[in-house]
Design a protein around this nucleic acid. Sequence first.
DNA 1: CTTTCATCTTGGAATCATTCTAAATTGATA
DNA 2: TATCAATTTAGAATGATTCCAAGATGAAAG
Lengths: 141, 141
Amino acid sequence: MKAARICKEIGLKLTPQRMAILDYLEGNTSHPSAEEVYAAVSKRFPAISVATVYNTLASLRDRGCLLELTIDPSKKRYDPDTRPHHHLICTSCKRVADIEFKYDLSVPEGLRMGYEITGNHIEFYGLCPECKKPRRSGARR
Amino acid sequence: MKAARICKEIGLKLTPQRMAILDYLEGNTSHPSAEEVYAAVSKRFPAISVATVYNTLASLRDRGCLLELTIDPSKKRYDPDTRPHHHLICTSCKRVADIEFKYDLSVPEGLRMGYEITGNHIEFYGLCPECKKPRRSGARR
DNA sequence: CTTTCATCTTGGAATCATTCTAAATTGATA
DNA sequence: TATCAATTTAGAATGATTCCAAGATGAAAG
Ligand SMILES: [Mn+2]
Ligand SMILES: [Mn+2]
Ligand SMILES: [Zn+2]
Ligand SMILES: [Zn+2]
């Protein structure tokens, strides 16, 4: 879906800053952090402030247009693909890949402890192809 | 396993601060944050510093005696139960409960993208019994 | 095309969790 | 009992994120 349309549909003003952020996010599968979004958008929009990036990401997240992932301990990661899916994180470089596969994750009645379960998400841990190589560290961040 | 023995086995000096932390952690199923560990241990050991709590938690984690959970976006949570199991977090009060149930989480070869998968963890989201009640918010933190 | 105003943007300060530092202390071993 | 690497500690430093107050601006209305 294109940026302009998203804003209208969720009742957000169409500002150039948001356009830039939404453009960057559109189809992006890198699961960027707020800082990475800021870095990328700054190139095309040098005057944007980090506050605006955080504000926009929060607005989109609140309206269900963006997933906020807690998978990386040091920072939040964002995912414009809001369909339910799981993630595989490289324990070395923190790269995050999608796992598009359905699992049966029903919790037996007896183990729910009175909770009402509303969702789930699997974090797979591993080593990405880059980090498997013995050579130089592929670690980012 | 009792605190003193744990230290010896993993090659850590047996200090009173560690004893206190290990005692608090032993059998604890509340998945406390570093701050909560500090608050609890401070009562019995008023002079302990937060740095020591962080240091000790990191040492235990590094030696595989403690799990560091990334399930709560605002802070790390610790779990002395290192057997593989999953978690259910209340989206309202952030309470974390254990889900002791085995799931088949094998990733089809074709979807691994060259990653070597080493582990997994399911986060279930929901509302705890307290937070389901319409009355006062049970929200902590 | 102007007016209007709630929504946005912005730079900087503030907050919060966590890590780092350098000096003083202390278990554990000899 | 001497020795010393490991540990503790207070406080500074860091890094991500949130808050704030003031100025700017989409978008609806006329
Ligand atoms: Mn994804
Ligand atoms: Mn647990
Ligand atoms: Zn990697
Ligand atoms: Zn709750």
